[in-house]
Design a protein around this nucleic acid. Structure first.
Lengths: 150, 150
DNA sequence: CGCAATCAGGACCGGAGGCGTCCTGATTGT
DNA sequence: ACAATCAGGACGCCTCCGGTCCTGATTGCG
């Protein structure tokens, strides 16, 4: 199974939370932590990663915080994963590392996963955060989301 | 990055090796280890997993070994990964586990990654081992493939 | 002008799980 | 009967993720 980092999961939650209500609003880390139920240090870490990836913009100083850099519909899930976990690739041997393999010529791995990587990258580029938003929410508990839970 | 297990990588190598030459031939674990450069105990482990997944058939006893259950072109890479690493899913919370989440109602994760999982599963089902075979080989050394190398 | 709030960046540690190995038993051809 | 080979599980090392915390830079407010 593809062992996606839990941090990426948090990232989707936080981005969705940011995308709710008025998208231009600035939210600070502690407020987002309270709204999502994720531990505050973790929230801060994820937001910093997302800021580094250009998915959110940060405002420092008093009353600072984070806001979405683009609307949710313009954020493919591939970008989120890339921001949190680095470039999308299946194995270590895949990107670069040419010549580092010990079995070398008999190593049929080099470049072999490339089509798989490309296929996954493509698949993940087609799905945006807006697509992932609330299968259950929109149906049952949209109202519950307006208020910070937990 | 999608941290695909190294075992899956070995599996592809071993299956490709099995698919070379005459596909019906029986190869034992030590021979495959020698041909691929992978440590023998690891080869045995991978082959056992593949046999459990029905990708190879095993013959016990003296002069026993493994052979492909189907031709390479009939083995999607998704089957290999499923055999080695279990069912394909991005996170633990995704499949089943309903109600096991601590944040529960505020956990926007449940079911959310489903479209992503489906997209990846689909992508991996479209690519067979035959497709992955030798991007470099087919160009330069197609002839080399006809005969068992190394 | 000083202070408080907030993000930026990195260091640090604990725990989980993958990876590789090995051992014992079952099966089969010679 | 023996040797070869696979089946299945147990086990330990080691890497890496996760979560936390600390210090410094930036900015608005009193």
């Amino acid at each position: 199974m593809f062992r996606l980092s839990k941090l990426s999961d948090y990232a989707v939650v936080l981005l969705s939370e940011l995308g709710r209500a008025n998208e231009g609003a600035v939210r600070n880390a502690s407020g987002l932590a309270a709204a999502t139920g994720i531990a505050e240090p973790t929230v801060a870490k994820v937001l910093k990663l997302l800021a580094g990836g250009g998915l959110v913009t940060s405002q420092r100083g008093a009353h600072g915080g984070y806001r979405l850099a683009r609307p949710l519909a313009a954020i493919p899930i591939a970008d989120v994963i890339a921001a949190i976990e680095g470039p999308i690739a299946l194995t270590a041997c895949v990107d670069g590392h040419v010549g580092a393999c010990e079995v070398e010529c008999s190593c049929p791995v080099r470049g072999r996963w490339d089509p798989v990587n490309a296929a996954i990258r493509h698949a993940l580029s087609e799905i945006t955060l807006a697509d992932m938003a609330c299968p259950a929410w929109t149906l049952t508990g949209a109202a519950r989301l307006a208020e910070p839970v937990v």
